[in-house]
Design a protein around this nucleic acid. Sequence first.
DNA 1: ATAATAAGTCAGCGGGTGTTTACTTCTAGG
DNA 2: CCTAGAAGTAAACACCCGCTGACTTATTAT
Lengths: 182, 182
Amino acid sequence: MDVPDRKRRDAAQTRQNLLDVARNRFARHGYAATTVRDIADEAGVNVALISRYFESKEGLFRACLTHAASDVREEPTAATPAEIAARLAQRLSGPPGDRRQLDAFLLLIRSSGDERIDDLRRSILLGLSEKLGGDLLRAQLVLAAAVGISLLRAALDLEPLASATEDDLRKPLEDVIHALMG
Amino acid sequence: MDVPDRKRRDAAQTRQNLLDVARNRFARHGYAATTVRDIADEAGVNVALISRYFESKEGLFRACLTHAASDVREEPTAATPAEIAARLAQRLSGPPGDRRQLDAFLLLIRSSGDERIDDLRRSILLGLSEKLGGDLLRAQLVLAAAVGISLLRAALDLEPLASATEDDLRKPLEDVIHALMG
DNA sequence: ATAATAAGTCAGCGGGTGTTTACTTCTAGG
DNA sequence: CCTAGAAGTAAACACCCGCTGACTTATTAT
């Protein structure tokens, strides 16, 4: 194991564990349906640590959102529709066992009820659609397709879409993006 | 006013009011974030009536889902991509002031946490995608685009998509559907 | 008019939520 | 070794949730 000692105390590691667990649960079940005790239990630590490290449940959600945003943003600006489609297909399916990219998309559409956080979500999504280039409305339709696929796949388990592989998704996505952004 | 007397007691009318309010709130904020007191307050009645008329919060949600499903299903089977796009654009924008069609889409992607209700949602969505015809996976991608647009428009208020009119949406949607279902 | 019943309200219950305070346990520096 | 401070825990808090049983008010039928 690369993880040297599960029981060794390490604040940074614990904090990261909480972030990972929270990100996944928020993405899958939404903000309101996720309890801080669920998160702490799955991370194997006490609930109080959430308040200590992130101040509050909302603070934890904001931290998740920030990390997810930078994960999504680190994407290089793709030129051709085929490239964008390939990237998107990879993100939406993801390396086996790694749902972080998929969760990032889902997080962006989960509301916490706090208006300032919702503003943050909107600005992230707006930035993403601007980055796609071309007509803004059409770029947002590409984004809409992406988040819709994420939802139907990960949160709803709608078959056969849920089991579609990266290869299955690439060509249809390419068709869509080409149709929308020429 | 066609509504003769606001204060006159009418169980059927009250029940319908609760359904309308609940459908809108569940669609916009999700199941967990919506409280029965919120619904009752907006409907102008006491909380206890929800339990009386719908047995429980989950019963009310199930009723909303059933009504929304029949609303969505009453759509005639459209033949050409252009027709499907036109219908979809109309549903996603909706007659001014009438968000029922938009809410219907949103309801279908809101989980209540109850597995049997989730099965119902899945079967409704599966039926919808089958009705679209053609390759099932590609039909579900059309559906994904539709629910994604609903989300970004109604629940997230992402501009300029949120303010796009029916006319603004029709042509891009036609392009997408044509690309996916030829 | 008045009894019977439906429609609606009120106040409270048990339970789960986010958060905090006081405490215990581990770990590093002298 | 041993002790200060960090890391983590346990228990309780105040609050809000969904739900219910006893009550009041309006409507209808006789």
